[in-house]
Computed example of a mutant assay.
Amino acid sequence: MNETAKPHLRPFDPRFSCGPTKKHPGWSLDQLSNAALGRSHRSALAVSKLREAIDRTMALLEVPEGFRGAILGGSDTGAMEAAIWSLLGERPVDVFAWDTFGARWLKDVRDELKLKDANVHEARGGLTPDFSKARKNADIVFTWNATAAGAMIPDTDWIPDEREGLTLVDATSAAFALELDWSKIDVLTFSWQKAMGGEAQHGMIILSPRAIERLKTYTPSWPIPRMMQLKNADGLNEGLFEGKTLNTVSLLSTEDYLLSLKWAAKEGGLAALIARTRKNFAVLSNWVAATPWIDFLVEDTASRSPVSVTLKFADPDVTAMSQEEQWAITRKMASLLDRENAALDVAPHVSGVAGLRIWCGPTIEADDLAALGPWLDWAYVEARRAD
């Protein structure tokens, strides 16, 4: 292929990682000076900050009255596994999985807990399972937006209005970036390091009144690791919902998360965050539409994530190659873009399809995405010349 000139304009911020994601606009390390450093996470000051983080989260996500939230260790994984191990087993279970993270919940249900009446519905390669197979009498486990696959649920119509079971939803790359239908949610988990650009290892769980009632009245037959215990000897662990975490939380990360929540409120709240995400996705979509060598991995537009956007090669000369050869092009592109400080962390998840994966969540600026396109074109040409 012919050599192309490097673009003149670089993205102001080249960080497009799908997690941990870019900090919000205007972020500065100096803004964390009020962190409760050197204090016990059980001190009154620390607990007040953790409770503030919970309260601000619930307000920003517009969580209905009666739902309760808590901070857990182990990021979204810890929060989701706490829900799975604490709540499942009372009734049948339907698990819907279409990327590597959803497969983790499937493994918990099928291989670790070994639940007998468990139906598994899987898909791969940018596709989603047949959601119509959800049973009214079953608990349902699924991912709202599969970060690695770039595919999300198209709607919530498939979840029965009069469901008998609970819905356990991994929403780590959906919370704060997509509209959530709280009428179809009983358990929602996510982490700080996705849409809000927070630091790793901190997960959150939000429980509906139905989920809280299950916790109070049902005890699984298996032992639950301490880090996953939502109950204690007195019943429901009320302290969790007051900011009294099970393990030592990072108060520096807590201050950072609070900063992002305050930024979001000033931006205009949840509607503004969703609008920023949609604007970002529109900019990237325009580039994809005008670029013949790339296309969306997810063909169904209703299931195509506007947040964690996965792209595949569309050049016939490249699509005729093996996935190993295509991954070689991906790695070369990523190396070139990193060297030029033009785009960082745009390779797909290692379990995915060769191509690109670009975060378009609310902390990203649309102007940076507009500047990104020409650099991706340049890197593609350079990578093809080298193959």
Rank of each mutant, 00 (worst) to 15 (best):
Q193K: 13
S43Q: 04
R51Q: 12
Q323K: 09
G355M: 09
I185L: 03
A383S: 13
L127P: 00
G355K: 02
D94V: 12
D317Q: 15
A289K: 14
P129W: 03
D181K: 12
E242F: 03
L45C: 07
R104K: 12
T147F: 02
A148H: 02
D387W: 14
D170L: 06
A134L: 08
I224P: 02
R10V: 12
S303K: 09
W287L: 08
I153V: 15
V141H: 05
N341R: 13
S221M: 09
L61D: 01
T167Y: 03
L251G: 00
F176W: 06
A177W: 02
H24R: 10
W378E: 04
D108I: 13
L87M: 13
P292G: 14
L9R: 12
K262L: 10
A149R: 05
G268K: 14
E90C: 05
V283Q: 01
A175P: 00
F67M: 06
P25N: 05
V318F: 03
S86W: 01
V249S: 11
D117G: 06
S303E: 07
D377I: 07
S132H: 10
A175H: 08
T301Q: 13
E238H: 14
R10A: 07
S132Q: 14
P25L: 08
F142P: 00
K133C: 12
T319S: 10
T167V: 14
E299G: 15
L337W: 00
F313R: 03
K262W: 00
R278C: 07
V249E: 01
K6A: 13
L180V: 08
H121M: 09
G19N: 04
W27M: 11
T147Y: 04
R331W: 05
K116C: 03
A46I: 09
D139P: 04
T128S: 05
D161M: 08
K332L: 10
G243K: 06
F12K: 10
P160D: 08
G78S: 12
S322A: 09
A171M: 09
S303I: 02
E324I: 10
S303T: 05
L87R: 00
E52A: 15
D368K: 08
P220R: 11
L166P: 01
Y257V: 10
A282P: 02
D234Y: 10
S208D: 07
D30Q: 13
T172E: 11
D368G: 06
S17I: 08
K231M: 11
P362W: 11
D30T: 10
N280C: 05
W144F: 10
T57L: 02
L236V: 05
N247T: 14
G243I: 04
I212D: 01
M1E: 12
V63Y: 07
D55S: 14
A264H: 00
A379H: 04
P20W: 04
V93K: 00
R339A: 15
A83N: 02
R384G: 00
A70G: 06
F131D: 04
S305W: 01
E65R: 12
L230Q: 02
A175Y: 00
D345I: 08
F96T: 03
M333K: 13
T147C: 15
D155W: 13
E90P: 00
M1V: 13
T217R: 09
R331S: 07
F12M: 08
F67H: 03
K136E: 15
L376Q: 01
P64E: 06
R210H: 04
E179R: 14
R39I: 09
